[in-house]
Nucleic acid binder design. Structure first.
Length: 479
RNA sequence: GGGAGUGUAGCUCAGUUGGCAGAGCAACGGCCUUUUAAGCCGUAGGUCCUGGGUUCGAGUCCCAGCACUCUCACCA
């Protein structure tokens, strides 16, 4: 036990001797700190208030103690005096930074104008036994911030603020979709075939069934089964898991919104996406121009819609049909193009030349069909699929298409996909093909990466700042 | 996995050319009834990430390892 902890244990023992119960029970009748300040009336000397929270700052000036109490809403000052507290004064002198207390009493301004609860009753609700972070700089060590998010959240108020916004954004999304008659559902996260995306899955094992299972990389194929079943408008907001490297934009588990609308197509989903994200910007951001790192992103509608092939020409300088030119460009970019399929080379060049230029919200539309095994080809130009991705600040924020509902074509696409697979992690999802044979209504489908959306809307440049407990290596064994 | 950077008191950070280990905050003791990162006086607090090496002498230089950050790769 550290010296610091010992000192606080001793204080706790002294408080117990004074009859203080250091770990309190239910504490009722409180109001959020900011609401108390909001309802304060200047000319009413009879006001009372009761607030619970953590001691963020403490100024002991002898026979008076001023405390900055922090709760979920913000802060309020609590004033302690020997005169008002009486018998409790002695135990009040034992309070430390970080303790959780409840304080009630008259509400009044101090000489310097701070609205203050002058406590005539004080309750210790939980003793803080470990040293709190530095009160001005907060907790800065990045590793410790993520490992001990419970400290980060109260030591750095803007962290709590950001996660409150994340929660509010998700509520906005739910309300928006429910208002449009979409039904929220939950589909399996443990799957026998990890389909719906091109990514390596995590493998786990079911003991009594004696079989391996995959954590899902996407809910897509299950949600579309629901379209077959007659759930014409569904959505799911939940975790996907992909076994890949970590980066500023990638956490192995991440939250995805997927939406399916029967009788729609990708144009419908494009409008839906623009409407939904704009609503989030309007409700949760200061304006339509947001700062994100070095970029200022303008969300003013309508957003740019540009064809994949046109962007390739604009930024990559080559014609999508001129494969020689594309491969030449690939070599210029130091891409190892010799072993790649045509479609893959095209996409590598696209990623290397185009994506860094997509700062303002941009719908990239009509992807090469070979890259889209679950999307419907365009009738007038079958080399391309009715698919779009939304890019903001160089990040892929959304992915959507007109769903392929032809079982024969879907079966062919699955076969082609399997052909390229060396690791046989992906299997033919023949049940999904069976489902399509029963008939799936034509539909538009959409996926939005919630973490990335929250990043953009709250100005967080790393996904770890919008995930409460991002994946880390386990800490070394230690208290 | 490759490259670059960081690691010093509970926290935030200095530390010169290789020459006694430092500050602010927090803590402990004292003074203070209107403070706002309260103030003033005093005290205590260190495996300088770990292990080797060079040197009379290493927080500082060299080698190896560990952790974290950034970046590239894997990955839509």
């Amino acid at each position: 036990m550290s010296k610091f902890e010992q000192q606080r244990q001793e204080k706790l023992a002294r408080a117990k001797e004074l009859g203080v119960e250091p770990y309190g029970n239910r504490y009722e009748g409180t109001e959020p700190a900011e609401e108390i300040k909001g309802r304060f009336k200047e000319d009413d000397p009879t006001q009372q208030a009761n607030c619970a929270g953590r001691i963020a700052l403490l100024r002991d000036i002898g026979k008076l103690i001023f405390i900055t109490l922090r709760d979920r809403s913000g802060t309020i000052q609590v004033g302690l005096s020997k005169k008002l507290l009486g018998e409790q004064w002695e135990s009040a002198k034992l309070l430390d930074l970080g303790d959780i207390i409840g304080a009630s009493g008259p509400l009044a301004r101090t000489k310097t104008g701070e609205i203050t609860i002058w406590a005539d009753h004080l309750t210790l609700l939980s003793k803080c036994l470990l040293p709190p972070p530095e009160k001005f700089h907060g907790l800065a060590d990045i590793d410790q911030r993520y490992r001990q998010r419970y400290v980060d959240l109260w030591a750095n108020p803007q962290v709590l603020e950001r996660f409150k916004t994340r929660s509010a954004i998700i509520t906005t999304i739910r309300n928006f979709l429910e208002s449009k008659d979409f039904l929220e559902v939950e589909t399996p996260m443990m799957q026998t075939i990890a389909g719906g995306a091109a990514a390596r899955p995590f493998v786990t094992h079911h003991n009594s069934l004696g079989m391996d299972l995959f954590l899902r990389i996407s809910p897509e194929l299950f949600l579309k089964r629901l379209l077959v079943g007659g759930m014409e408008r569904v959505f799911e907001i939940n975790r996907n898991f992909r076994n890949e490297g970590l980066s500023r934009q990638h956490n192995p588990e991440f939250t995805m919104l997927e939406v399916y609308q029967a009788y729609g197509d990708y144009d419908v989903m494009m409008d839906l996406t623009e409407e939904l994200v704009s609503l989030c910007v309007q409700k949760h951001c200061a304006g339509t121009r947001l700062q994100f790192g070095e970029f200022t992103i303008d969300f003013t509608r309508p957003w740019r819609r540009a064809r994949y092939a046109d962007l390739l020409k604009e930024y990559g300088g080559c014609d999508i049909d001129d494969l020689k030119a594309v491969r030449t460009k690939a070599r210029q970019l130091n891409l190892d193009e010799a072993e790649m399929d045509d479609a893959v080379v095209v996409n590598e060049v696209f990623e290397a030349t185009v994506e860094d230029n997509l700062i303002a919200p941009t719908f990239v539309i009509d992807y090469p069909a070979a890259l889209c095994p679950l999307a419907r080809r365009k009738k007038d130009d079958p080399k391309f699929a009715s698919r779009f991705e939304l890019f903001v600040a160089r990040m892929e924020l959304a992915n959507a298409y007109t769903e392929l509902n032809d079982p024969a074509e879907q079966y062919e696409n699955f076969l082609n996909q399997l052909r390229g697979q060396e690791e046989s992690l992906t299997k033919m999802d023949s049940d999904y093909v069976t489902a399509l044979k029963y008939g799936m209504p034509p539909a538009g489908g959409l996926g939005i990466g919630i973490d990335r959306l929250v990043m953009v809307l709250t100005g967080a440049e790393t996904i770890r700042d919008v995930v409460l407990f991002p994946l880390l290596r386990p800490a070394k064994a230690q208290g």
